[in-house]
Amino acid sequence: MVFQIIKSYKHCSLLFILFVSCCFAFSAASAQRVYTKNGHIAFFSKSPLENISAENNEVTSIINVPTGELQFSVLIKSFRFKKSLMEEHFNENYLESDKYPKAVFKGTILNITAVNFTKDGNVNVQVSGNLTLHGITKPVISSGTITIRNGIATAAAFFKLRLADYNIKIPGIVKDNIAEQVDITVNCIYDRKL
């Protein structure tokens, strides 16, 4: 009898330990969201007449670590150009930033399980999602890298974007100054955690 009680007690304590560790694992996973509100996105347009580049250091981006969900939000007015006229045309004529103030990407890191956020390393990732720009939403697939250094993740990606896909019209007079496809470079350091 006493032996049986001890045995069942053992079972109970084992179950209890299992339960507690599950709780811990769950809470650790659910707390793992990393984000930045000052990430970096740049674009570059190469044409025979002129190279145009702009940078944005006010990107909000969040990675939901357990699920691999990824989000970027960019204020169009935060892109800085070398010339103010370019900035003006970009905002007023091409991207109509008063009407469409933000560009948003919502997607998933398909191979998130390959990334260990607690160990230093560098992993190639595949990202798939939807980009909403200039009021138009289109699927985007891109590869990128996630680098972990001292527990801080950095995401880097490079992809090309066709302006016509987002109904961004370039007038004939400056057609030769702006590329049909522009290069987008993403570099975000996720130095904040939730």
């Binding site: 939000s73 007015k77 939730l194």
Partner: peptide, 17 residues
């Protein structure tokens, strides 16, 4: 430059830049 993105379900408030 305007107001950024809020993600209320994650408790992230929007900043003004």
């Amino acid at each position: 430059n305007g107001i950024g993105e809020a993600v209320p379900e994650l408790g992230i408030a929007a900043d003004i830049y």
